Amino acid sequence: MGMSVTISAATAEDAEQIIKLQYLAFQSEAELYGNYRIQPLTQSLDSLKAELASDTVLVARLGEEIVGAVRGTVDDEGTGKIAKLCVHPRLQGHGLGARLLNAVEAALSGNDATTRFRLYTGHKSESNLRLYRKAGYTQVGGRTASDGVRLVILEKEAKEATDFAVSA
Rank of each mutant, 00 (worst) to 15 (best):
R143N: 15
L96A: 02
L100G: 03
I153W: 05
K124V: 13
E77R: 12
E157D: 15
T115Y: 11
Y132K: 13
N102I: 08
L131W: 06
S4W: 15
Q22Y: 03
R61H: 07
R143M: 15
R61M: 13
E13F: 04
Q92W: 12
S28W: 13
R116V: 00
A12G: 00
L62T: 01
A53K: 07
L85S: 09
S146I: 10
T144E: 14
L41G: 03
G93I: 11
L101G: 08
T114M: 04
T121L: 11
D46V: 07
L52E: 02
G80H: 05
A83R: 10
R99A: 02
E16V: 04
L62D: 09
Q39W: 11
Q27W: 02
H123N: 13
A165L: 09
L119P: 05
S109D: 13
Q27A: 12
A83T: 04
G122N: 00
E126P: 14
L52F: 05
Y120P: 13
G2D: 15
K156E: 08
R61E: 12
A83Q: 05
Q22E: 14
L45P: 02
L131A: 10
E51Y: 12
T162V: 15
A106C: 13
E155A: 01
K49M: 12
A145Q: 11
G63T: 07
V104Y: 00
L41W: 01
K84E: 02
A165M: 05
R118W: 02
T42P: 09
E157P: 14
I7E: 03
G80V: 07
E16D: 00
P40T: 07
A113T: 13
V57C: 02
A25R: 08
Q43M: 06
E126A: 15
L85G: 09
E65R: 07
G122V: 00
L52M: 06
Q139D: 02
K156G: 06
N35M: 10
D14N: 05
N102P: 01
S54K: 15
I153L: 09
V57D: 03
L154H: 08
L48T: 06
Q92D: 06
A103E: 12
Y33T: 10
K84R: 07
D75W: 06
L151Q: 11
T11K: 04
Y137H: 02
L85E: 01
A60E: 03
T138L: 14
R61P: 06
C86L: 09
G95Q: 00
I19R: 04
E77V: 00
A50D: 12
S4A: 12
A50G: 11
V166S: 08
L85A: 09
A60S: 06
P89V: 01
V59G: 06
G93E: 10
V59H: 01
S109G: 14
R133H: 14
